[in-house]
Each structure stands twice: as structure tokens, then as C-alpha cells.
């Protein structure tokens, strides 16, 4: 059984101006889709629309051929969305943050798996430090640890490279392509140049409003 997120005729309007119109988009196994466009071109809005976070102004969204409105539980069970804010609670340490996300997704998860995921992201030794005392990049790395901890088919990542250092960027890029190679799909926005190691679909929003 495979999966597919299909968008047809999406549109987004802000202050009487179309950010994009009649946008068609399909994501399936092995796809890496990069949403491009200058600041304010509606990249984040598009990702939020696709994640079912914003009400559709036009067009339709289908998950495996079923309207997203009805397929929402199944869709959310396969989705990992990382937004602008990393979603990391400053008062909790990395392990506690990750454990909550795992429980939220119906996984019990093991302490050892969480330690391992944090170590991969270079956070060994910071597991028990409250996130408030970590840097922005380290907080984002905690959020990125969810990618390895919770296997989800569809990743929707809004500027995942923000505040990440060069080595971290390379490792994350590897993770994206490996995820696609393993049959997953990635939808992301970034201003960072991706080194294509597979089929990279580009969606350019800079002229999509005309």
C-alpha cells in the first residue's frame, strides 16, 4: 500500500492579493518537494494548507484519494510537521520534550532510543539540560530528533535548516534524502541550496499569484 497527498487548485489570498492561485501539487513515496519563493510569497501558508492547518480558500486536498476532511486522522497519523517555532518547551529537558511528542503520537518509545537520537544530532551531554538553557540551534536539533524517533511517511518541514550549523545542515540533508530513498516523502521550504541526490521537485511561488 502506498500513499499520496494530492492538492488541486489551491489558492491563498492575503489582503486582497493572491499569494498563489490554481496550484497543483502531488506528493508520494520518494518525493522531495521544495517550495521556493521570496519572503512573503506564501511558502509557510502553503505548508500549513497542506498540513490541514489552514482552512482551504479554494481547491481540494486528498489523502490517498479521500478528501482530507474525512481522512484527517489517517493523514495526521502519517504526518510529521515542524513549523517555524520548534515546539520545544523551555522548562523541560530534551528527553522530556521528546517523550511527550512520542506519547502524543501513540508511541511509548524507549529512553535508550531517545538518547541515541539526541546523540546523532550532537546533543550528547545536553539530554538533561532544560531547553531554556540551550541555544536556538540546539533547540531546533531537539525538534529534528523527532524525525528519527518517530517514523512518519510524510515530513512537512518549514525552514528546517534555520539556526543549524554547517555539519548539522549536511546531516539533515542526508536524512531528507535517506527518508525519500526509504519510501517516504519530504515537503520543505528553505533558502538553503539543496544538493540534489534524487528527484527534487521545485514549486516556485514567486509568480504563482499572477
Amino acid at each position: 500500500m502506498t500513499f499520496r497527498l494530492e492538492a488541486r487548485g489551491l489558492a491563498c489570498e492575503r489582503d486582497d492579493r493572491w499569494l498563489f492561485r490554481d496550484l497543483d501539487l502531488g506528493v508520494g513515496p520518494g518525493d522531495v518537494v521544495r517550495i521556493e519563493g521570496p519572503n512573503g510569497s506564501g511558502k509557510t501558508s502553503l505548508l500549513k494548507l497542506l498540513a490541514g492547518q489552514l482552512p482551504l480558500q479554494a481547491g481540494e486536498l486528498h489523502w490517498n484519494g479521500v478528501s482530507l476532511r474525512r481522512a484527517r486522522p489517517a493523514f495526521l497519523a502519517n504526518l510529521l510537521y515542524l513549523g517555524h517555532a520548534p515546539g520545544i518547551k523551555p522548562a523541560l529537558n530534551a528527553l522530556e520534550n521528546l517523550a511527550w511528542y512520542q506519547a502524543l503520537h501513540g508511541e511509548s518509545g524507549s529512553h535508550r532510543a531517545r538518547l541515541a537520537a539526541l546523540e546523532v544530532l550532537g546533543l550528547a551531554g545536553f539530554e538533561e539540560v532544560p531547553a531554556a538553557q540551550l541555544s536556538a540551534g540546539q533547540q531546533r536539533r531537539i525538534a529534528l530528533a523527532r524525525l528519527t524517533l518517530s517514523p512518519r511517511l510524510l515530513w512537512i518541514l518549514d525552514e528546517p535548516f534555520t539556526a543549524i550549523d554547517r555539519q548539522g545542515v549536511a546531516a539533515l540533508e542526508d536524512a531528507l534524502w535517506n527518508h525519500a530513498a526509504a519510501g517516504g516523502a519530504v515537503l520543505l521550504t528553505t533558502h538553503h541550496e539543496l544538493h540534489a541526490r534524487g528527484a527534487l521537485t521545485r514549486v516556485d511561488l514567486s509568480k504563482a499569484g499572477d
Partner: peptide
């Protein structure tokens, strides 16, 4: 901190 967004998802 963005965790409300995650709660909704």
C-alpha cells in the same frame, strides 16, 4: 513555543 501547533496536529 510552538507546541500548541503540534498539539493540534
Amino acid at each position: 513555543d510552538g507546541s500548541l501547533e503540534q498539539l493540534l496536529l
